[in-house]
Design a protein around this nucleic acid. Structure first.
Length: 302
DNA sequence: AACACCGCCTGAGCGC
DNA sequence: TGCGCTCAGGCGGTGT
């Protein structure tokens, strides 16, 4: 499940080879993965950074942008199962070839200080196709597309978080998952951050006091930064550009552990469902009773 | 305006 | 062994 740490780690694994490289011929095997645009935007999409020298990579929330010297840019959204990988072109395609929707030839610069042999291809793979690629004529266009997103979660501070959550009545977890409020947090790290901050996921977001907001902002930053260092959480699909899984799963304290004892207090972790998402929290460490009004939310047990 | 919910999509895991 | 069912969830679109 790529969230901010997985996306950022992928970006960092792409960066050393991609920046300075030239993307050659592009093979778009599934056009619906690229874009549904028409006219000029469609022609742009069908080129998808073909014959482009890459000068930078960017990330906001869970999205990556690859910037070319001629101004064009490509935004990558991984969705649930998307991945970008470098490949040597003398290796046969595996059984998952049908999920490799876009393949570029890539011509990398000299390999000084870079990991492994120079890749010859770069591919976008996405079995469930919740992800996709969007072509942009410029980084300005990318920034416009990213404008509705909230601030990036990796550098969120308490003051900004308080502003974003002010007046929000829905459950804290629901607000954290909203990319327009805060960009980058998904289901895994929302549960982890709320548990670390001692905030019940159903606690109304706008009624958190400043102490809790501070704790939440710190938890989000700390947990995301650590997960980036660990190469992200690999539950099943996630891999970086070199096919390496991440190890952040080992440090999860609540996600996927409903029914098991809390590592903090030993009470049995609760499984519930909030805005349609499986949610795990500790009835001891994450107290809901301290807030006057409970948020509305679907509390069916799993 | 704010928020909930649906549907997209495939593969894993389960019961039978 | 294999079938059908459920679940996983990011995100855009739509409904309340």
């Amino acid at each position: 499940m790529p969230e901010l740490p997985e996306v950022e780690h992928l970006r960092r694994s792409l960066d050393p080879w991609l920046v300075g490289a030239r993307l050659g011929a592009v093979e778009i095997r599934r056009r619906d993965v690229a874009t549904r645009a028409t006219g000029a935007a469609r022609r742009l999409a069908l080129a998808l950074l073909e014959d482009a020298e890459i000068v930078a990579t960017h990330r906001h929330g869970k999205q990556i942008a690859i910037e070319a010297r001629d101004g064009r840019a490509l935004v990558i959204q991984l969705g649930m199962t998307g991945s970008v990988a470098f490949e040597r072109d003398d290796l046969p395609e595996g059984a998952d070839a049908r999920h490799r929707h876009v393949v570029w030839r890539i011509d990398c610069r000299r390999a000084a200080g870079r990991p492994g042999p120079a890749p010859r291809r770069m591919s976008f793979r996405d079995p469930r196709r919740f992800g996709g690629l969007t072509a942009h004529p410029s980084m300005d266009s990318v920034r416009t597309a990213w404008a509705p997103l909230g601030p990036d979660a990796l550098s969120i501070d308490a003051r900004t978080l308080a502003d974003r959550l002010a007046g929000v009545r829905r459950p804290a977890k629901s607000a954290l998952l909203d990319q327009g409020v805060l960009a980058g947090v998904g289901n895994i790290y929302a549960d982890e951050a709320l548990h670390a901050a001692g905030i019940h996921p159903l606690h109304p977001a706008g009624e958190l006091d400043s102490i809790r907001i501070q704790s939440l902002a710190r938890s989000i930053q700390r947990i995301l930064a650590r997960a980036v260092r660990q190469g992200g959480s690999t539950l099943r699909d996630y891999r970086d550009a070199f096919g390496q899984p991440g190890t952040a799963v080992q440090t999860h304290r609540v996600y996927g552990r409903a029914g098991e004892p809390c590592l903090g207090c030993g009470r049995v972790l609760e499984g519930l469902r909030i805005v349609g998402r499986a949610t795990v929290c500790c009835p001891g460490c994450q107290d809901l009773s301290t807030c006057a009004h409970r948020a509305t939310g679907d509390r069916r047990h799993r």
